[in-house]
Amino acid sequence: MNTSSLNLDYCIEKLQRGEILPENTIKEITDKMKELLIGESNVQEIRSPVTVVGDVHGQFYDVLEIFKIGGQCPNTNYLFLGDYVDRGYHSVETISLLTCLKLRYPSRITLLRGNHESRQITQVYGFYGECMRKYGNPTVWKYFTEMFDYLSVAAIIDDAIYCVHGGLSPSAPAIDQIKVLDRFQEVPNEGALSDILWSDPDPERDGFVESQRGAGYSYGKDVVMRFLHTNKMQHIIRAHQLCMDGYQTLFDNRLSTVWSAPNYCYRCGNMASIVEVNEKLERYFNTYAAAPDSLSNKPNLDTNKELPDYFL
């Protein structure tokens, strides 16, 4: 693996101390990552046992906690369902660490794309601004967002559990249709690729239901049952939605939502979880609260914050 000067173990240790990597190293790891990901299928086939992680949103100190709770890489296999960046204060550290771990242990860790792994969304919700603050220019943001275009969009554990960031699409009822999508692009605003990264289950209504907002679908129990039957799957694990308890199970235990950002945005007070899938395909939700380091490492974005707030 290490044909160049790149020392991944050194990078991983540095990141785990909370330090960021230099710009040229980011260029190197994102280039290598693209070479690695281009060979991966849209739908990754993986083996149990594996621990599935939902949205982490730049909450780096909570990500370090996940490895403490779930086991360090490569002792535990991991599948991340996307939304590594935005909202939290350490998107750079989070995506840098996950990228290095993937390069170091490619068969032990799988990273899928979430709807936040996109140029458009990261410009609005924090990752772009964070790169500007930490590197003084948008180059690192450009390297990472180019890399995001190469991420796979779904995974199947032991031919039985289908895993994806958001869910199902009316334009792709069969997994084979997802396998042939052209994923190497910015997340489009519509179509199958967009739907599977954005859609939510709806416990109250059957079918695909169009959102009041004018874009986006939710999918009902019948859609899930049909998808599982058509594709000979047992269960769906997805992320994308905040759950106060860290997870939620719907549709007679055929679909789970896993949420892995505790005390989301440093204020919601919610629990988080990771799903441990064993060789018998039993699922165990390992729940946890925010890491003590998570709040104490909140940066002082506004240097006036310590002064009294004379709001008007």
Binding site: E190, D202, R205, F208, V209, E210, G214, A215
Partner: peptide, 20 residues
């Protein structure tokens, strides 16, 4: 409606499901 609504509606004009 959200900004992508117009384009979304065009692409999904054959959608026959319900609205939330």
């Amino acid at each position: 409606k959200v900004s992508s609504a117009k384009k979304w509606e065009e692409i999904n004009k054959n959608f026959e499901g319900q609205i939330e």
